[in-house]
């Protein structure tokens, strides 16, 4: 008879349904990565052979290296640009603010395919050979919006009385920035960098349009393997990638906790 109980039950069942829906694919991957069968159906016994095959596959190794390299460099650049832009956007009277904000927010809602197509055509127009450089540029471009927004949202809650207090205590502007403001920005910067990193390793569409033959990232490799039907090792690879992202989430939490304390 308690008010809300009916709705609560309804919500709870919807929630359970959604949870099953969200986790089914991940569970399947993990289970089948240990399945001793060439095709992904029916349980044929436990094996670790696909993990071994995985480590012997040169293509996968290369794709992995590419992915990490692109993710690290584009995270670094997009985070640095993001910090600068966020600091610039703090000034509400600044004339370029509107333009920059538009350039930051619009890419967020554009379908990836449009960014992919437009960059592909740009690189063709400029006669830049597709490969590592073009993928890097593309990744910085889509990560930048996210880093600016995450860092900026942290700055919005910034307590300026702290700066005033530092000034009152005789600190020079430059010192104030490094001793007061920057340390308070660090959690935002870390969050932004982690987001950029995950977006970069996750991206398929934009990379698909901007990478040439011979420069595969993991998602590109996986898609190709699915198309070619050589999917035996993919379950194992996927499981490792799931584990990797989980590890990333956990370390993020840890880092955030450390930073907050």
């Amino acid at each position: 008879m308690k008010p809300g109980s009916l709705y609560r039950r309804l919500n709870l069942s919807a929630f359970t349904l959604v949870m099953i829906f969200l986790y089914i694919p991940i569970l399947i991957l993990i289970i089948f990565s240990f399945n001793n069968s060439k095709i992904v159906a029916g349980w044929k016994g436990f094996t670790l052979k696909y993990y071994l095959l995985l480590f012997q596959n040169e293509q996968i190794k290369l794709a992995f290296q590419h992915t990490v390299m692109i993710a690290l460099t584009s995270t670094l650049v997009s985070t640095i640009l993001g910090v600068l832009a966020a600091l610039g956007l703090e000034n509400k009277r600044f004339k370029g603010r509107k333009v920059l904000r538009a350039l930051v927010y619009v890419p967020l809602i554009m379908p990836d395919i449009l960014m992919g197509v437009s960059l592909a055509l740009l690189f063709n127009f400029l006669r830049v050979g597709t490969g590592m450089l073009t993928v890097f540029i593309a990744h910085v471009t889509f990560c930048l919006s996210y880093t600016v927004i995450v860092i900026q949202s942290r700055l919005e809650g910034f307590d300026y009385s702290l700066v005033e207090a530092a000034m009152d205590l005789g600190a020079k502007p430059w010192l104030i920035f490094w001793k007061v403001k920057f340390p308070l920005m660090v959690p935002g910067i870390v969050a932004a960098a982690l987001l950029a990193f995950t977006l970069s390793i996750d991206d398929f569409i934009i990379t698909f349009f901007t990478s040439g033959r011979g420069f595969d990232t993991l998602p590109i490799y996986v898609e190709g393997a699915i198309r070619r039907g050589t999917i035996t090792t993919i379950n194992a690879l996927s499981t490792l990638m799931v584990g990797f992202t989980l590890l990333l989430v956990i370390t993020t939490k840890r880092i955030r906790k450390l930073l907050l304390n």
Partner: peptide, 22 residues
């Protein structure tokens, strides 16, 4: 304002070149 221009310039240029111009 000048400071803000300097800070925003890299992102402005980047997004213009690789988001708007394309």
């Amino acid at each position: 304002n000048l400071q803000s221009w300097f800070l925003s310039m890299p992102s402005l240029i980047w997004l213009t070149a690789f988001f708007a111009v394309p």
